[in-house]
Amino acid sequence: MDKLLEILEDLKPGVDFALEDDLIEDGILSSLEIMTLVVELCTEFGIEISPLDIVPENFKSAQAIYALITRIRDED
């Protein structure tokens, strides 16, 4: 989780990602930033994210993103 928070803070400085619970609806992460984040997650965590996983529910908070990473790792 710490590594994920680090990536998020690096991507968008000044946002409290541990507390934010709707990064999409609140307009904190744009679609291009999500794409940058997804590529980051693939390279940093060594996972394969499917296009079907790129939905708002999986990116609405740091917890949701972490749950996605965990799920993909478990499936592998």
Binding site: D10, L11, L32, M35, T36, V38, V39, E40, C42, T43, E48, I49, S50, P51
Partner: peptide, 26 residues
């Protein structure tokens, strides 16, 4: 999200400065 592109992104990130290295793969 293709495998070859993720590899390329890794390479770019290692060669470029922090912010540019993150953005170029997009």
């Amino acid at each position: 999200l293709s495998k070859w592109f993720v590899k390329l992104s890794k390479l770019i990130k290692s060669r470029l400065r922090s912010n540019t290295g993150k953005i170029v793969p997009t």
